[in-house]
Design a protein around this nucleic acid. Structure first.
Lengths: 133, 133
DNA sequence: CCTGATATGTTATGTTATAACGTAATGCAA
DNA sequence: TTGCATTACGTTATAACATAACATATCAGG
């Protein structure tokens, strides 16, 4: 039941939301190609650009991949925790982290405009499993 | 006066240290090729892998580039501030940031093992220049 | 009607990174 | 001193990620 008259950005957002793990641009492309075999990478990258600018999607720099925003278009920075075992990514709020970050940078005269905070490790479930072994 | 009997990793570290800006793997490769025209990317990536594992070099995920560690092999995480204007990257210590990060993640049961903290913005010098306009 | 903004199509290319295999030198332990 | 693991390096090929440059279409508002 895919909707007609959707923009590519809307379709891309749908694809990313359906997944519980980050998707690469080419992952999205492959999925779109099942319906539109001639799709070019450019199209996907354009859609991703508009979605990340709007805040509907976040890019995970350390994975070259994208996840849906957990709170579409929230306008505050967040932190991403990335499980190295199951691959899940969780977005969290952490105001205290950003306030300390701001003050550390502010003292040095640095003006922040975009934050990349990605923590790799093990999620609670995978940690349990490992410990259980 | 380049030394003989240096490993590639040592040479790569030298190249990265000479620069005051992040260098891409292919940037390093190009420089090495001026003396060793047949050098392959693999060689550079191998050197970068060993250097980042040792902590002599840090990878900037959001730039796909590398900088020398400001305190070779320190074994605590640091934050990187990246000037969008002049391209300079500064590494800083910020223990308070990491302690809040740990507690936020710890509450959720997440076990951290590697941190990517990269802040894009304007360094003090570039900010002044902009304001001066 | 014209014009600017946005979305899209198309082709080509640039950039970043790894796989998979082989060789050489070294150190160390049986 | 032979055998074996380890580390570094060479070589070829390919995979994965990303953008440039230029063309066409649609539509809202002046």
């Amino acid at each position: 039941m895919s909707k007609k008259n959707e923009t590519w950005a809307e379709k891309v957002l749908g694809i990313i939301r359906q997944r519980d793990q980050p998707v690469s641009a080419y992952g999205v492309l492959e999925e779109l190609r099942s319906e539109s075999p001639k799709m070019a990478p450019t199209t996907v990258y354009r859609a991703l650009k508009s979605l990340t600018e709007k805040g509907s999607v976040h890019r995970i720099e350390s994975l070259n991949a994208y996840v849906a925003c957990s709170d579409d278009g929230h306008h505050h920075p967040s932190i991403m925790s990335i499980c190295g075992d199951c691959g899940s990514v969780d977005e969290r709020d952490a105001p205290a982290v950003f306030s300390h970050l701001s003050s550390a940078l502010g003292e040095a005269g640095f003006t922040a405009d975009h934050h990349v905070i990605e923590v790799h490790g093990l999620c609670a479930d995978c940690k349990e499993t490992e410990d259980g072994i």
